[in-house]
Design a protein around this nucleic acid. Structure first.
Lengths: 134, 134
DNA sequence: CATGTACTTAGCTCATCGGTTAAATAACCT
DNA sequence: AGGTTATTTAACCGATGAGCTAAGTACATG
């Protein structure tokens, strides 16, 4: 049985060889041979690692003659980052300051607008999900 | 042999039960019994999961009489977030916009100051590490 | 077509992982 | 001391994971 996406992504990231491969790919698309070079490991081993990374949605692969160029695929990274966001308040100071600010703004807004039905906002849920900077 | 810290952290996160435990702990410190309740699983199994999480630096445990209250430990989360930051440019639009801005600023600064030795800045390295929001 | 290059698949080994039950430890409460 | 509650340790089992070698596939080129 296949694991849920987040589990297979984390599992894929739990190997230093695979993380090193991703670090290399962050510099740009490249071939399997090229990726294998830094490692004291058989080619099939690298091939397996790439399969794991692909299955985890962390890379995608193309076809160019006999080469299978690999590149970073953003989606799973984004998902991991999203999950991590649920815990950001535990370590990110600026996140907490921003939260304080947002809460202040909500309080002020609530003071201006008279309370209607469904006016109450679940701040805790709100601040844990789908945050972007900007 | 023990894995490197990042590997054991990712490995710890690669299990849905353990992620659910962390999600519960995000709501606040609690006991092993309390943590075990939602799961159809023996207590020793939970105990093992907690040991893995503790070893990964994702939780810490106290002592209060016969209870061992668990709570989120920030350090490993932060480390994961830091590692993920190396790849942020692949999915985070606002991150890219910010990078563009920073690069512009560097260009302007460089235009003002006449080129000295070691003036060249490795933007790529710079933008991949130790970023915080402000 | 034959040979070389770039991979992938198959089949094996060994270690680790997630779960189990049974027993041990630790602290509290008569 | 004896019992109850909370949690861990020990010993085991089946499944999965990372590595290997050997063989297979796909494409390019002489």
């Amino acid at each position: 049985m296949p694991l849920d996406p987040l589990s297979s992504t984390f599992a894929a990231l739990a190997d230093p060889t695979r993380r090193a491969i991703l670090a290399r790919l962050a510099l740009g698309e490249t071939s399997v041979m090229e990726l294998a070079k830094p490692f004291d490991m058989s080619l099939p081993a690298i091939s397996k690692h790439l399969k794991v990374l692909e299955h985890a949605g962390l890379i995608s692969r193309g076809r160019e003659a006999q080469w299978r160029p690999c590149r970073i695929a953003p989606a799973s990274f984004k998902q991991v980052d999203g999950w991590l966001g649920n815990f950001r308040r535990f370590w990110d100071e600026s996140f907490n300051r921003l939260d304080g600010l947002l809460e202040e703004m909500k309080v002020e807004e609530a003071a201006k607008a008279p309370p209607r039905s469904q006016r109450k906002v679940r701040v805790t849920k709100e601040k844990q999900r789908g945050r972007t900077r900007g």
